[in-house]
Simulated assay, not measured.
Amino acid sequence: MTSDATGPAGLDLTSNAALVLIDVQTGFADPAWGRPSPDAAGAQDNMRRLAQAWSGGGRPLVVVRHDSTSASSPLRPDAPGNTLEPWVAALDADVLITKTVNSAFIGDPALEAWLREREIAQIVVVGIQSNMCVETTARMGGNLGFDVIVPIDATSTFDLSGPDGDVLTAEELRRATATNLHGGGFARVVSTAAVLDAVTTAEASRHDDLGSHRV
């Protein structure tokens, strides 16, 4: 577990927990965003590992894409950077949600309705940026009554200047996100390893149950 990841051991996942993969788009490679998290590549690898685990286990996978309304944004719909990273585009996602704001719950189609229709009460939120769309989505999910899990090392962000001109590093911002979500009770903040362990445990239990029914 990374230093900014806190969370319970023995994490339980529901059989239909949804992975919400936010804004993993090529435009975030643009230098205009500033200095990225030093482990941004590792964070994206963790996102990929989780997506593969979800696909392999038959759990619902939600991909979110940001369609910026800013004419200068690398993420605007007519810009090359709007495209999903190739590995994300190749996923067999259950739904693609497009949004123009920070929260994946304010997009098309409506994420809350999509989850409620499928009786999904638990979501695992990952992606870019930790302190922007990931945190906003997790906060809103918690407010709406979902059981929200955030493997913080499967998120990344960029250095950011405050109103006084002081810069907070990507590492500081991600730690702040972990603290905000945990301290505010919006989400359980864990590691990718904890979630993958929970997937493995759930799969083993499911196979054991299937075996017992054959006896």
Rank of each mutant, 00 (worst) to 15 (best):
L61D: 09
G10W: 06
I149P: 06
L196C: 08
R188G: 10
D30E: 08
A89M: 03
W54D: 04
G183F: 04
N82Q: 11
F186W: 12
G127R: 06
G81K: 05
S161D: 14
T100Y: 04
V124H: 03
L50E: 04
A17F: 03
L91S: 00
A110M: 13
V167H: 09
G107V: 02
D39H: 12
A178D: 01
S15H: 14
V190F: 00
G162Y: 12
G211K: 15
A9N: 15
G58L: 11
V62K: 08
W114A: 08
E203D: 14
G81Q: 04
D30K: 07
E117Q: 13
Q129S: 12
R139G: 07
G141E: 06
A113Y: 14
S68K: 04
G165W: 10
S130F: 03
N16V: 09
D208T: 13
D147K: 09
G142R: 02
N82G: 11
A9W: 11
P109D: 05
D159I: 07
D108H: 13
L84Q: 04
R175I: 04
T192N: 02
T177I: 03
R175H: 13
P60K: 10
G56I: 06
G56E: 05
G141C: 06
L111W: 04
A40S: 11
A41K: 09
I97A: 07
S37M: 11
S70P: 08
I106H: 11
